[in-house]
Design a protein around this nucleic acid. Structure first.
Lengths: 192, 192
DNA sequence: CCAAAAGTGTTCAGACTACACCCATGT
DNA sequence: ACATGGGTGTAGTCTGAACACTTTTGG
């Protein structure tokens, strides 16, 4: 929650870099300080430098975004950052500063890169079912995908390996669990 | 040409921003000061901030790239910037600082975006033949394209309009000249 | 008439889309 | 037995790739 003129609005986590710190290191530090999250995928988004984006003065922001699995968000709230929350995009409207623009840019980037990289691995736990994977795609692309076609394409991409293990949730047939062969960023064709 | 430890190496144009200047405005200004070029397409590339990228001290660079038609480069060389030259990528090796990395990032970006935007308009004069357009694609993608397939796809994309005029160069059949319907950036599918 | 660039269609293979039913489990 | 999510195949359409000859001009 921010002060005037952004009273009561939410904002993305942010902070200042020091003279001997890269923006990547600063992003990792700030993410850790404000949320406790470490060891996740980080990617430089872009730099926002409109003259009046912060009413308090000139601020040039090098924006980074993190991707992490839904399960691992165990938000640690220190006293200093007690107001921190995870929110779905749908409830992250009307942010302070130009943070709506930043968030939108991050969503656009993610949406585009899902189609030609394997970066979705950073949004899933080590083992996952194909249905879970499909759900991630559907959320980000904001449209439904055909189950059979999705499985054909994602398996044909050759990025997954079957773990052999299964998971049963509720009174259903067990789901085979897969994992990514590699957690390096690969550029290829995956989903159209 | 740069001083120690980059004696005799070339570098990309660059400069400092002022407190009341966006990086876009600075990019436009520096490009104008060093080359005389104005009114061209500019796009933010990314920010380079490794701690030791400039041996003289901490420098965070927000890199932008410009696209301009081959014909319009009339390089004005002021006294201050007498050493400025246009060079093909193939003769832009071994640059000072991390400028090889920056240049490579720009080439990668351009190569990728040619396939799904109409930004190639910024690399051509107002009127151009389909062969000229194809040549631009071939240079940037660094591979040959089939003439018939190229024409089918580029015309099917619907971004061009025939101007009705023709151009004759040498003892050849005249080439029909086309122009882009719009010079706004459009995201669509063009060339695979 | 010759040289050189402009212009033009068809065929084949692979990819994408749409679509419906059976399977395995816990209750 | 039933409710629920997991899992599978095929037919039709579309897209991309390969490929060669005719046209128009100036010299």
């Amino acid at each position: 929650m921010k002060k005037s003129p952004f009273v009561g609005r939410w904002a993305l986590p942010g902070g200042l870099i020091s003279d001997h710190e890269t923006t990547l290191a600063a992003a990792e530090r700030i993410l850790r300080e404000e949320t406790g999250v470490t060891g996740v995928y980080l990617e430089q988004l872009m730099t926002f430098d409109e003259l009046k984006r912060d009413p308090a003065g000139r601020v040039v922001s090098v924006a980074w975004f993190a991707l992490l699995p839904d399960g691992e968000l165990e938000l640690h709230t220190s006293e200093k950052y007690a107001g921190v929350e995870w929110r779905p995009i749908s409830r992250a409207k009307n942010l302070a500063y130009d943070h709506n623009k930043i968030l939108q840019a991050a969503v656009d980037r993610l949406r585009a890169k899902l189609g030609y990289t394997n970066m979705v691995w950073s949004l899933l736990p080590t083992k996952f079912s194909l249905t879970e994977l499909q759900t991630v795609y559907e959320i980000i692309l904001d449209r439904e995908l055909d189950k059979r076609n999705f499985r054909k394409k994602i398996l044909a991409a050759g990025l997954l390996k079957a773990t052999g293990s299964q998971r049963i949730i509720g009174a259903h047939r067990p789901a085979a669990l897969y994992s990514f062969k590699t957690k390096k960023l690969i550029v290829t064709n995956i989903i159209s």
